[in-house]
Amino acid sequence: MTPPVLSARPGRATRTTRARRRSDDRASYLWFLIPGAVLLLAVIVVPLFMNVGISLTRWSGVGDPQWTGLDNYRRLFADGTFWASFRHNVNLIVAMALLPTLAGLVIAAALYDFVGKRFGPRAASVLRACIYLPQVLPIAVAGIVWGWILAPDNGALNEFLDAVGLGALAQDWLGDPDLALWSVMGVLVWVQVGYPVVIFMAGLQRVDPALYEAAELDGASWWRRFWHISIPQIRAEVYVVLLTCTIAALKVFGPIYVLTRGGPGGSTNVPSYFSFQNFFEKTQVGYGAAIATVLMVIILVLTAVFLRAQDRGESTRR
């Protein structure tokens, strides 16, 4: 973005009239907020409070909701399915936030520092594009692709294992309750890993090359430079990626819906799918609203904590 250079200089009003004009000025900008505010109210704020309200009732979606106070929440905390769904969420955080971040750091540094510098930036950006590609797929389509690859009979993965003589390892990847969650995790790593790679590579471009040159002259190995220069320098990016991916993992719905529908036997159920089931399949709307409310609170707390931590990180660095 290149702002055009300006020659005219603003005339100076006296300080008092200028200050008064500024505050009038500011107030009149409020008009521009009105469409956005009305829409936000209608689509986010009102439904949000309605949802909390519904969570305090027993309601099938038709007729009048029946006030039950905190009953839904009491039931929720005694519900094994609910706790299991959050345990699965922890696994998905590992698959969507933790592993991609770790792998992304190594891949991004290797691409930027090794491939980019020794084989040319073109090679690095082609490889980056390949790794990023799954990110552009609609998550539902990624689910279809993998549902088909992981199919027990004739699925590409089992056929491949057979072809290389490992047929004994063939599994019902998504149909075995002990295995399904791990398969879903594998798919999500594939989906997610490109995102940190792209963000971290962009961050590395910001790092002052003099830092590396100095370290290299001091005889620091690649790993030491990676650990002591690259990672601390792109800490802001690491925070952002961890936060956004963790939130995405908590909200995961599409892959579960397409790959397993929460099954087999609830072994891949997650809160978002669990609330969806209660809303639209079991018509226990109050209960579904309670699940969604808990999920919302967790996400908001997490966002606040992360932003705090990032803020503190920034201020101690300065």
Binding site: L40, V43, L48, N51, I247, L250, L295, M296, I299
Partner: peptide, 19 residues
Amino acid sequence: FLIANTLPQEALVYPLYYL
């Protein structure tokens, strides 16, 4: 606005569906 963007859609879906 930031909160509006990070909210899980599950927490909005039923009231929106109803409205």
